[in-house]
């Protein structure tokens, strides 16, 4: 996991720079940890399965497919939108949803670009979707859509900041067993090639 954390750290740093660019420097990210968590634990990570959350998700179209999901509390959603539009700005729902959609697009695509580079193949992405629901229901929908994804997901615990304040959010990568088994050895290989 050490090499995976170092690889992910580099990618999250790139994503953080992009988020900052999109928000005049108001949004930032810092990778805290990378670990595998059981699927049954995921719903409990952001206030429990019945907690209201906002999810921004997209599929990474590789074989087998992956899914990128950023989960945040409704308060974090407001903070992220205000970091882009300016605090107190009147923001209609469509604009707010499109800011989150674009945020998910940029971050999910950063992961797609990183995987494309790692496995030397094109990794396309689906249109990002923004969904507000209970954590359990939202995750069940994603899991059903992915089919066979194994028992664990990669949790990248990222501290996101909006205007200097930490916001409650998490980033998950859901992937099938085959890709999971290839990801860590490939990262290790790349790091050993790089010396």
């Amino acid at each position: 996991m050490k090499e995976l954390k170092a690889w992910m750290d580099h990618k999250i740093d790139g994503a953080s720079k992009k988020a900052a660019k999109m928000s005049s420097g108001n949004l930032g990210m810092n990778l805290l940890s990378v670990r595998l968590v059981g699927l049954h634990e995921v719903g409990g990570l952001l206030g429990g399965e019945s907690a209201s959350v906002v999810g921004v998700g997209m599929s990474l179209l590789c074989e087998p497919p992956m899914h990128f999901l950023m989960l945040m509390t409704p308060e974090a959603r407001t903070a992220v939108v205000e970091a882009v539009t300016g605090a107190g700005s009147a923001t209609d729902e469509e604009l707010a949803a499109s800011i989150l959609q674009e945020m998910g697009n940029i971050l999910g695509s950063t992961m797609a670009n990183a995987l494309a580079e790692l496995f030397e193949r094109v990794v396309q992405t689906s249109t990002p979707q923004v969904v507000a629901d209970m954590a359990g229901a939202l995750l069940s929908g994603i899991i059903a859509g992915l089919g066979d994804i194994g028992d664990e997901v990669l949790l990248t615990d990222v501290e996101m900041t909006a205007c200097g304040n930490a916001v409650d959010s998490r980033i998950f990568l859901f992937f099938g067993d085959q890709l999971h088994q290839r990801l860590i050895p490939r990262v290790r290989e790349v790091y050993s090639e790089a010396g």
Partner: peptide, 9 residues
């Protein structure tokens, strides 16, 4: 205009 920054694409 794209967020997917991959050479082949």
């Amino acid at each position: 205009i794209t967020a997917v920054d991959q050479r082949d694409s």
